[in-house]
């Protein structure tokens, strides 16, 4: 089974971010970068599929040199091959360009199952997996919380999240699955894995000659309006609860 995992590095989710001057970019110096949390579930599911059915795992990221850190961690976890598509030469790319290039690279490698996170927590467009599937003309199931693959029948049954519940869906393979939290509990890398990862050379691809044009562009970044710090209702029960209800009623919230 040929398994592909697409991962991305994102700024740590807990830190405050600064906008760089009046550019539409953030300050990226000296901030901690992590693997996109949803991609961790995708990686873990890949490892489980390999344990069950055999095969090999290729992990791809589209990013800067710095992103090699997350690839190394994927080797430590058990990836067979990692690949960085170098984006340092591409000034402007949108999700469409990213997906086109990923689809092209994935096609060359060959695939049975492609796993992505359901969205990245930086831009949060929630589109890469679906677009890759459309470019490759294969199935895509979004935000999965359970995956049962049947390689013999070339199909999979999965649970995908919808508003207010879950859908059980059946799809043909090959397919793209995007991972939602709840799919699994990611493991930690072993010490021997970490040692091995240190020595592995990371392959790099240069996409600059491919010439796809972005269709959308970020023109500005701003900080969201600060919420006014509200008031602490002083006193003791039941007065505090009564006061709260009075306020909510006046604001027509209840």
């Amino acid at each position: 089974m040929k398994i592909i995992v697409c991962v991305k590095e994102v700024p740590d989710t807990a830190i405050a971010l600064k906008i760089k001057g009046d550019s539409p970019e953030i300050e990226t110096e000296n901030i901690p970068w992590v693997i996109n949390p949803y991609d961790e579930y995708a990686m873990e599911e890949a490892l489980r599929l390999k344990e069950k059915f055999g095969g090999d795992i290729t992990v791809i990221t589209f990013g800067q040199k710095r992103a090699e850190n997350i690839l190394r961690n994927c080797i430590a976890l058990g990836a067979d091959r990692v690949l960085r598509i170098n984006d340092e030469s591409i000034k402007n790319r949108d999700g469409l360009v990213t997906s086109k290039i990923l689809a092209k690279v994935i096609k060359d490698i060959g695939y049975d199952i492609i796993l992505c996170g359901k969205e990245s927590v930086d831009y949060g467009y929630a589109q890469t997996g679906q677009m890759i599937a459309e470019f490759l003309q294969i199935s895509c199931v979004l935000a999965i919380k359970k995956l049962d693959v049947s390689p013999l029948n070339k199909e999979a049954i999965c649970h995908r999240e919808i508003e207010g519940g879950l859908e059980v869906v059946k799809c043909n393979l090959p397919a793209v699955f995007t991972a939602q939290k709840g799919l699994n509990t990611p493991r930690y890398a072993s010490l021997s894995g970490i040692m091995k990862a240190k020595k592995t050379k990371i392959e790099t691809l240069e996409p600059d000659a491919w010439g796809f044009k972005p269709k959308i562009r970020i023109t500005n970044l701003s900080y969201p309006p600060k919420r006014q710090e509200g008031k602490i209702i002083k006193g003791t029960l039941p007065d505090t609860a009564e006061e709260l209800v009075k306020n909510l009623k006046e604001a027509r919230l209840i």
Binding site: L17, T219, N220
Partner: peptide, 10 residues
């Protein structure tokens, strides 16, 4: 964007 930490104009 960035989990609600910033707003982008696109």
């Amino acid at each position: 964007v960035y989990g609600g930490r910033l707003i982008a104009t696109v």
